[in-house]
Amino acid sequence: MTTHYLVLSGLLFAIGAMGVLIRRNAIVVFMCVELMLNACNLAFVAFARQNGNLEGQIIAFFVMVVAAAEVVVGLAIIVTIFRTRRSASVDDANLLKY
Protein backbone atom coordinates (compact mmCIF):
# COMPACT_ATOMS: atom_id res chain seq x y z
CA MET A 1 0.00 0.00 0.00
CA THR A 2 2.71 2.46 1.07
CA THR A 3 4.78 1.52 -1.93
CA HIS A 4 2.29 3.07 -4.32
CA TYR A 5 2.34 6.33 -2.48
CA LEU A 6 6.13 6.29 -2.48
CA VAL A 7 6.31 5.61 -6.21
CA LEU A 8 3.92 8.49 -6.81
CA SER A 9 5.97 10.65 -4.50
CA GLY A 10 9.19 9.72 -6.34
CA LEU A 11 7.57 10.45 -9.72
CA LEU A 12 6.31 13.85 -8.56
CA PHE A 13 9.77 14.67 -7.12
CA ALA A 14 11.48 13.66 -10.35
CA ILE A 15 9.05 15.74 -12.43
CA GLY A 16 9.65 18.71 -10.10
CA ALA A 17 13.44 18.34 -10.23
CA MET A 18 13.35 18.04 -14.04
CA GLY A 19 11.22 21.15 -14.21
CA VAL A 20 13.64 23.09 -12.04
CA LEU A 21 16.51 22.04 -14.27
CA ILE A 22 15.04 22.58 -17.69
CA ARG A 23 12.41 25.33 -17.43
CA ARG A 24 13.53 28.96 -17.77
CA ASN A 25 10.47 30.76 -16.56
CA ALA A 26 10.98 31.65 -12.92
CA ILE A 27 7.30 31.13 -12.06
CA VAL A 28 7.34 27.61 -13.50
CA VAL A 29 10.61 26.83 -11.74
CA PHE A 30 8.96 28.01 -8.58
CA MET A 31 5.96 25.77 -9.10
CA CYS A 32 8.30 22.86 -9.71
CA VAL A 33 9.98 23.53 -6.39
CA GLU A 34 6.56 23.43 -4.77
CA LEU A 35 5.92 20.14 -6.55
CA MET A 36 9.11 18.68 -5.07
CA LEU A 37 8.16 19.86 -1.60
CA ASN A 38 4.72 18.32 -1.88
CA ALA A 39 6.20 15.09 -3.19
CA CYS A 40 8.20 14.97 0.02
CA ASN A 41 5.05 15.77 2.01
CA LEU A 42 3.29 12.83 0.38
CA ALA A 43 6.14 10.53 1.37
CA PHE A 44 6.08 11.83 4.95
CA VAL A 45 2.35 11.32 5.29
CA ALA A 46 2.54 7.85 3.74
CA PHE A 47 5.24 6.78 6.18
CA ALA A 48 3.30 8.32 9.08
CA ARG A 49 0.24 6.30 8.16
CA GLN A 50 2.29 3.12 7.79
CA ASN A 51 3.98 3.54 11.18
CA GLY A 52 0.81 4.73 12.88
CA ASN A 53 2.23 7.84 14.50
CA LEU A 54 1.78 11.54 13.84
CA GLU A 55 5.34 12.75 13.49
CA GLY A 56 5.38 12.55 9.70
CA GLN A 57 2.15 14.50 9.48
CA ILE A 58 3.49 17.17 11.79
CA ILE A 59 6.58 17.55 9.63
CA ALA A 60 4.31 17.85 6.58
CA PHE A 61 2.62 20.80 8.22
CA PHE A 62 5.99 22.39 8.91
CA VAL A 63 6.94 21.91 5.30
CA MET A 64 3.75 23.64 4.21
CA VAL A 65 4.47 26.57 6.50
CA VAL A 66 7.99 26.87 5.17
CA ALA A 67 6.70 26.54 1.59
CA ALA A 68 4.16 29.32 2.19
CA ALA A 69 6.88 31.59 3.59
CA GLU A 70 9.12 30.72 0.65
CA VAL A 71 6.37 31.59 -1.80
CA VAL A 72 5.93 34.98 -0.18
CA VAL A 73 9.62 35.84 -0.39
CA GLY A 74 10.24 34.14 -3.71
CA LEU A 75 7.32 35.72 -5.53
CA ALA A 76 8.31 39.12 -4.19
CA ILE A 77 11.80 38.65 -5.63
CA ILE A 78 10.49 37.42 -8.95
CA VAL A 79 8.09 40.32 -9.25
CA THR A 80 10.85 42.81 -8.42
CA ILE A 81 13.20 41.29 -10.97
CA PHE A 82 10.47 41.32 -13.56
CA ARG A 83 9.72 44.95 -12.90
CA THR A 84 13.34 46.01 -13.34
CA ARG A 85 14.36 43.77 -16.22
CA ARG A 86 11.10 42.95 -17.99
CA SER A 87 11.94 39.26 -17.93
CA ALA A 88 11.08 36.36 -15.72
CA SER A 89 13.78 34.05 -17.14
CA VAL A 90 16.15 32.63 -14.55
CA ASP A 91 18.95 32.60 -17.12
CA ASP A 92 18.74 36.36 -17.55
CA ALA A 93 19.42 36.89 -13.87
CA ASN A 94 23.05 35.79 -14.14
CA LEU A 95 24.98 38.85 -13.01
CA LEU A 96 26.23 37.23 -9.82
CA LYS A 97 29.14 35.28 -11.26
CA TYR A 98 32.88 35.29 -11.64
Binding site: V20, L21, I22, V90, D91, N94, L95, Y98
Partner: peptide, 10 residues
Protein backbone atom coordinates in the same frame (compact mmCIF):
# COMPACT_ATOMS: atom_id res chain seq x y z
CA UNK B 1 30.69 30.29 -11.05
CA UNK B 2 28.65 30.95 -14.21
CA UNK B 3 25.81 32.87 -12.64
CA UNK B 4 23.18 30.44 -14.14
CA UNK B 5 21.01 29.28 -11.25
CA UNK B 6 19.99 26.16 -13.13
CA UNK B 7 23.50 24.88 -13.44
CA UNK B 8 23.93 25.31 -9.71
CA UNK B 9 20.75 23.37 -9.24
CA UNK B 10 22.14 20.63 -11.43
Amino acid sequence: QTGFARSYAL
